[in-house]
């Protein structure tokens, strides 16, 4: 079927491109809301952040405001609006925040990256070999919620090669929730590799027992 001489697929491309252009144009309310992000009144800043939910044109303004904002409720609104944009720049912003000094900002970043699994997956995978063990721990915390099919393989590689007991410990904790019987041999190897570590002996045995118990119950 054709419309105005164009094939359907061409029309779809045209419409999509027009929609993208529309989304990029600053309409008045977006401009106002961006200005309100700097209001001295925290309630108005929060309302502005909420109003900018899903508005791609506000991406930079939201990222900039997040750098300065101290009020938790406003930060939460900014973060939710940034998550709604689901863009590579948003992922990069939160990945950078995994290294910041404030614990609550690191936690916000973990939360945000967990909300964008498809967009953040490949970048989070790279963090599994980061030189900073605390960043690797947060990466494990993020990938536990990823639904992509590669996640079990990543965990397997991590458990076979990771030397830091705390990173392995976090992976172990998450595996006891989501691991499969296929991962039991890797876990048994961890018990041997960290034979002198009381916590890992405890955590690994617990993970194996839990996985075996779940699988012995059979399908629900």
């Amino acid at each position: 079927m054709a419309w105005n001489g164009r094939a359907d697929t061409e029309v779809e491309i045209l419409v999509k491109s027009q929609r993208n252009k529309d989304a990029e144009v600053d309409d008045l309310s977006t401009v106002e809301a961006k200005k309100e992000l700097s209001s001295p009144d925290a309630n108005r800043r929060r309302e502005a952040a909420v109003a900018l939910y899903g508005r791609k044109a506000a991406l930079s303004a939201l990222v900039d405001r997040l750098e300065e904002e101290d009020t938790p409720a406003v930060r939460e609104a900014i973060i939710n609006s940034l998550i709604s944009l689901d863009s590579p720049k948003v992922v990069d912003t939160f990945i950078a925040k995994l290294r910041c000094d404030e614990a609550e900002h690191r936690n916000e970043a973990v939360y945000a990256l967990q909300q964008m699994p498809e967009r953040s997956a490949q970048k989070v995978k790279k963090l599994l070999i980061d030189s900073d063990a605390d960043v690797r721990i947060m990466a494990v915390d993020i990938i536990r919620l990823l639904t992509i099919s590669d996640a079990p393989e990543w965990r397997g590689v991590l458990l076979e090669s990771e030397e830091n007991p705390n990173v392995v410990g976090v992976a172990m904790d998450r595996l006891s929730e989501i691991g499969s019987v296929n991962e039991v041999p890797v876990l048994e190897a961890v018990i041997e590799r960290f034979s002198g570590d009381a916590y890992l002996q405890f955590a690994t045995s617990h993970a194996i027992d839990r996985i075996k118990a779940i699988y012995s119950e059979g399908p629900i």
Binding site: V170, M172, D173, S176, E177, Y199, F202, A203, H206, A207
Partner: peptide, 11 residues
């Protein structure tokens, strides 16, 4: 927040 860590410390 880690269940296994809580269980370990509890023990």
């Amino acid at each position: 927040d880690a269940t296994t860590v809580r269980m370990y410390h509890r023990a």
